[in-house]
Structures are given as structure tokens and as C-alpha cells.
Design a protein around this nucleic acid. Structure first.
Lengths: 386, 386
DNA sequence: ACATCTCATTTGTACGTACAAGCATACTAA
DNA sequence: TTAGTATGCTTGTACGTACAAATGAGATGT
């Protein structure tokens, strides 16, 4: 495709005297510029390697490097170690700087599984040369708005968002719509606002609730109580699976065996209800807890009442968190991908950013993780006397 | 005027192996940046010639040229053939906007107490209108450099840093020095690199070690074993307090009762040693653990050997983490301010930024938190038969 | 089938040499 | 005196070598 004889030489022959004799690297620069402008090298395509150019033009590699690096500085080329040199696409050339910063908004930074999600995303982003902006909403929709406003106050490449109280409405919809119309890529983790069509990475919570009950039923449990937080969709879905499994097993489900609560009540109400249930004549033989964070106090409550876990009561948690192993009774629980989810969210967001298709080229780009049962010591068959 | 011995050299001598990550021309760039921003090279003045720099730093002229040309590209230098290289005047490179973004670099994002520190800082920063950039080093000095480089790739108002393996050397010193000379405010939390004079917020770890032993002695313990991580200064200081308390109480300290380990060994070695100690004829009646994270497996190890906690063995942790309550035996431990430390770090950094006195107007701006004893259930008097 | 390893290719770093070209100063010759 | 020259500095251009580090593809082992 590319001719062997080149203008480079004609130039030298011709202009020696009058033309001040352009330096070779300058001549090469002009030559390459011509290639790009003429379309001989299209945007995004790979430029012949330094060695190849050097040989073809009978230059040393250092001279070629000088030409390349000036073109890189001007934003026309992009060099990647180990891969090669590429013509930067036109639209990228117009922006002076690419922000290379992405934001994550989660409900809680410090607690439970969220640090692990952030960690996974951070590692992936750092390795790809992106910086991570972090903000937390404390599960408060007003703060969510604050966070979004602050994040968007400076240029940003993309956003990863964990919705706040996803089961309720979404007062910050205008923000998200404006992001969509601005072609700012973003995606959601754990859950999505129903009003928005954006890619989402989540655990199949309904399947999780289903699995928890199925496994307990297999072990012989017939009276199972469930404790679910219902102001986010994760809890709602786990509860849905919990009930589904009861229907499936044709087991009656007493209304008092379903305990729902809101985030604000999480430290009091479920434990209170648990005590009542455990003191009742026909007490449940197993608890399904919304997550490990709740499973631990439920276990402690049971033990305070003189019941042994799992001897007298089986308890199943969710999320396979650090608490599962730290707890007195190692928790039987269902997995949450945590770090992997963070990593994958980062990967997909970067693909959206760099692929240019901000809207979401994968139309159904959701990822649904299957929660896996982790057998530890907090669940067993109900004791004989039950 | 300019000294013959140079930081560049000190650095090379010290960190030959680990410092190889930072290319020489980058080191030189940072060095020159320092010269310029510190006023050692005033605007308009002539920079030593390429050959002179090359000789002084024992570099080849080509390498010096690489550094110079990058600085020229950034608009800091101006080169004139035949005359020399000059520092461009300040007004040509004034900063346009105040970034209002600060960075935090910690060892681990996801584990243990670090999320709480980040959380505290995030809350404070958000309320003051700052954005938070987060990066983690995984306790790896090379990643620390990566993080710093990435963070500094765009304008930043300030940095909060938790040192990586603070007990060992600091190969990234050039970065920190260049930050200081560029008047970029930063401070350290938990520990400080000995080589740097920067404000630092930390817990009085020595006092913590001292207190732990004192309280155990008050309860009648005479044989106390301590487990400390010694690749960061926190562990070293806690150990120091541990030994100090023994001297103070005129209690002999058997060498095998001091177990030290590195981060890489944390999941195996201490528990192994604990089992040995507990199986020995004259076993200790109390353990002081480097932190709660270690206290939990120590307790579990004891219980696996049929010992009750605190009946047969008292265990004291550090940091009052979430694990302290989740554990089977609620941990007696010493506090770590966590969120408060994060908040205060953010407050002080903002004061440094907005007060303009980047160097640190509070000459001795350190904050030393006193760890407080939290009485729970893992420590008691030794049993009578001991 | 899947992870792991090896290997060739690419750019990055670092050193070396040599000479050209621009600039300032000192010196020389008309 | 004055113009021109010589000299010695500077940066610029150009070539060369060598090895390091990242990447991706093909081979290999389990």
C-alpha cells in the first residue's frame, strides 16, 4: 500500500540551499501529517512501528521517535507501550484534555459490603489510568442530589451509582435525565431506579431468597421466618423469593413470620420481633435474615434467650460479608460478588466511555449475578424435639 | 550557590532497588520543579546547561534533554539555541481555577477501620464543597507511586495520605518533596514517614500498648503475650508501649511472649504462635493483639483448644472496630477515632488550603488521640487455678 | 477446557557519540 | 577604530546501542 520511494528524499534533493534544509524529523512529521489528512491513515488506525518507519525512510529510530513524540504532543498520535502507535480519532483531538475521572455514589461508604465494591472498582479504574471520585448519600435522597451536583461541578468521564432507597420514588430524576441527554455514561449497581433505563449490575436477589428457603426446607425446616428491609428493592426482591419458595413448597406462611422494616428501624425492630417470635409457643426453627449485618444480632438474640444456633434455630444471612466469619457462629450465607461487581462495573463504564456509545450500545447490558449458598455453621436440620 | 551533593543522589543511594520504578528523567523533572517553585531558580533566570546538569547528576545529556523538553512543553522552561535554558516567568503559567478536589491515599480501602476514616473525611469534605478522590495502595509502595502520579495528573487542592509500610523506607520521597516545593498541602494520618516533616494525625499507639498491659496487670495478669505487626510504625509503637509497661510493672517479659510479624504473614503466623503458647506448660493468661482483626482469630484459636475467653484467657484488641461487637465474645479493646480522625484531617487540610499557609502554619500541627479502654467481655481477671 | 507460560513485537528508558547551528565574547588585522 | 575572525559556550539534529516493560498471540501443561 505504502510506496517505497518517498517525498522525503525529493525534498532533500530539491531544497538543500534555499529551503534551509528542514530537519529530517520535521520532514517526517510533515509526511505523517499528510498521511493523516489525506486519509491514508484513518483515525484510530495503527501507524507503522517506529522500527518500520525508520527502516523505510532510512532514519534512526531515535529520529522517528522525535517526530512521533511531537505529533503525540500535538494530540494527533497516541502511543501505547507494547501495542503500537495510533492515530487519535478526530473528536478526541478537539477536546484539549480528557478528564479521565469517574465518580461513584453509594449509600454507605464505610459499612458492610460497600467498601469492597468500591475497592474492586478502584483497583480496576486505577489500572486503566482513571481516577476515582467517591461520595456517599447516607441513604438520604437529598444528599444524593448534593453528591450529584458536586460530582458534576467539574468534568467527569462517567458515573457508577448505587441507588438510594430504590423501592421508593426518585426525586433526582431530572439529574439523571440531564446526564443522559449530555451523553454522560453512567450505570447502576445493586439495583436500578425503575424510572431509568440504564445498564445495571445486580445480584439475583429473588433467586437468593428462593435458594435460602429451599435449602432450609431440604433440611427439614417447616416454620421459617424472614426479616427484610423493604425500602430498597434488594430487600423487596429477597422477600419475593422468600414467599415464592413457600408457595413452591406448598408451605403455609404465617403473616407474623414475615418481618419487614425500614432502614431507620434496623437496629431495633427486627431484633424485637425476633425475640417475640422465639418466645411464642410454635416458634420458627429458622430465620432468613435480610443480610449478614442483621443475621449477627438475630443470632445473639437467640443465644440470649438460651437457644443454641444452629441446634435450636438455624439462621441464614446474605452477602457473605466479613461478619460471617467474625461472628461467634460462622454464618451460613449467600454470596454477593462485591469486589467483582465493582471491577465489572468499572470495566463496563470504561467501555461505554471509550467506545463512545454513551447511551449504552449493549441494549440489555445488565449483569445478573447468581448468589451461591455458602455452608458454614449457622444452619442445620431442626432438632428432633421440634 | 547550588550544592554539589543533591537529593537525587541521596535518593539513589538509599533506594536503589525499589526506586527503579521512577524513571531518571522524571526524578530530574521533579527535582527541577522543586528548584523552580522553591525559588532556587527564579523566573527569568538561566538554568544550568544540559551538560552541567548531566555531569552533576551523572546522567547522559540525552536524559537531561528529555526532562527539559517535557518541562518546556509544560510551559515552565524556555530553551534558546546558543544561549541556554531559562525559567519562564510566573504570570505566564498562572492557574485558572481552584480545583476544589482533594485526594486520599490509604493502604486498604475496603477493610477494617479504613472505610470509616474515609467516610469521616468524605462527609466533612462534601459539606465544605470539596470532592474526594480515592486511591488505595494495597500496602504496596509501587502502587503508592502509581496513585500519587495519577492523583497529581490533574490539578488538586490537597492530599491526605496514610503511609504504606511506614516502618520501612520511603522510596517515593521525590514525589513528596516535589509536592512540598510546589506548595501543595498534604498531611498524613495514622503514621508519618520519618523523612518528612508534615502535619500528622495519629493515635498515641505507645500509650495504647501501655494502657492495655496496665489494665491487664490491674486485673492480676502476670504472663501476658503480645502480637504486633512490625512493618508499620503503629505496630512498632504499640509494641514499644507493651514492653514499656512490663518494665514499669517490673514484670519479666519472656522473649517468646512477644510475637512480631509482617503484613504478609498476618493470616498464619500469629495464630500459629498463639496455639504454641497456649499449649505450653506455663501459658500466658492474656493476649494483647495488634488490632481487633487479629484478636478475633486469636479468640477462635483459644476456643478451639478448649479454653474459654475470658475465663481461661483474656484478649485485648485495638481500634474498637465493627468486629469487636460481631465477634462471639464482645471484644475488650482500645478506641481509634476513625471517622473523627477522617473529619479532622479534612478540616485541617481545608484550613491549610484556604489559609494559604501550605507549609503548615501550625508548626507542630500534629494531633495525638488518646486511645480509650472499652470494657466488654474478652478480658477479665485470670481464673483462680492459674 | 482452561489456566499458564513462552516468545516476538512494540514502545519506554538510558546511555553513548558526533557534528551542526546559534550566540557572546575576545582577539586580530586593516 | 572597526570590521572580521576565532573561540568556546549553548542547544539542535542525528545516529547508534542496549535493555526494560507492556502487550498479545501461540504453545504448553494440567
Amino acid at each position: 500500500m505504502i510506496k517505497k520511494t518517498d517525498k522525503l528524499y525529493r525534498n532533500e534533493e530539491r531544497g538543500t540551499a534555499m529551503n534551509k534544509r528542514l530537519p529530517k524529523y520535521m520532514v517526517l512529521k510533515n509526511e505523517l501529517l499528510g498521511w493523516i489528512e489525506s486519509g491514508r491513515l484513518s483515525p484510530g488506525s495503527q501507524v507503522p512501528s517506529e522500527n518500520e518507519i525508520a527502516e523505510r525512510f532510512s532514519l534512526s529510530r531515535q529520529t522517528v521517535r522525535q517526530a512521533f513524540s511531537e505529533l503525540e504532543r500535538q494530540g494527533l498520535l497516541e502511543r501505547v507501550q507494547g501495542k503500537g502507535t495510533f492515530v487519535r480519532s478526530l473528536n478526541l483531538r478537539e477536546e484539549t484534555v480528557q478528564p479521565k475521572t469517574i465518580g461513584i455514589v453509594t449509600t454507605y461508604i464505610s459499612d458492610y459490603i460497600f467498601p469492597h465494591i468500591v475497592r474492586g472498582a478502584e483497583a480496576e479504574l486505577r489500572s486503566r489510568g482513571y481516577r476515582l471520585l467517591l461520595a456517599s448519600t447516607d441513604n438520604d435522597k437529598e444528599k444524593e442530589m448534593e453528591c450529584l451536583r458536586l460530582m458534576l461541578s467539574e468534568p467527569l468521564s462517567g458515573l457508577i451509582i448505587e441507588p438510594t432507597k430504590s423501592a421508593e420514588g426518585n426525586p433526582n430524576l431530572p439529574f439523571y435525565l440531564s446526564m443522559q441527554s449530555r451523553n454522560l455514561p453512567f450505570l447502576m449497581i445493586n439495583e436500578r431506579y425503575r424510572e431509568l433505563e440504564v445498564p445495571c449490575l445486580k445480584v439475583d436477589d429473588e433467586l437468593g431468597g428462593l435458594t435460602a428457603v429451599r435449602r432450609l426446607v431440604e433440611r427439614g425446616h417447616r416454620r421459617i421466618a424472614g426479616f427484610f428491609k423493604t425500602d430498597d428493592l434488594q430487600g423487596v426482591n429477597r422477600l419475593r423469593g422468600f414467599m415464592h419458595a413457600h408457595r413452591e413448597a406448598r408451605m403455609p406462611l404465617a403473616p407474623e413470620h414475615v418481618v419487614t422494616y425500614a432502614t431507620a428501624q434496623k437496629s431495633e425492630l427486627p431484633v424485637l420481633r425476633a425475640r417475640e417470635l422465639l418466645a411464642s409457643p410454635n416458634r420458627p426453627t429458622a430465620f432468613v435474615a435480610y443480610n449478614d449485618e442483621l443475621a449477627v444480632p438475630l443470632i445473639n438474640a437467640a443465644r440470649e434467650l438460651g437457644l443454641s444456633v444452629p441446634g435450636d434455630l438455624s439462621v441464614v444471612g446474605f452477602d457473605d460479608s466479613a461478619l460471617a466469619l467474625a461472628s461467634g457462629v460462622p454464618l451460613t450465607t449467600l454470596t454477593h460478588p462485591k469486589e467483582e461487581m465493582g471491577r465489572e462495573a468499572a470495566r463496563r463504564l470504561i467501555a461505554m466511555i471509550e467506545g463512545g456509545s454513551a447511551g449504552g450500545s449493549p441494549p440489555d447490558g445488565d449483569v445478573l449475578y447468581v448468589p451461591e449458598w455458602i455452608e458454614r455453621s449457622s444452619a442445620a436440620a431442626p432438632s428432633a424435639r421440634e
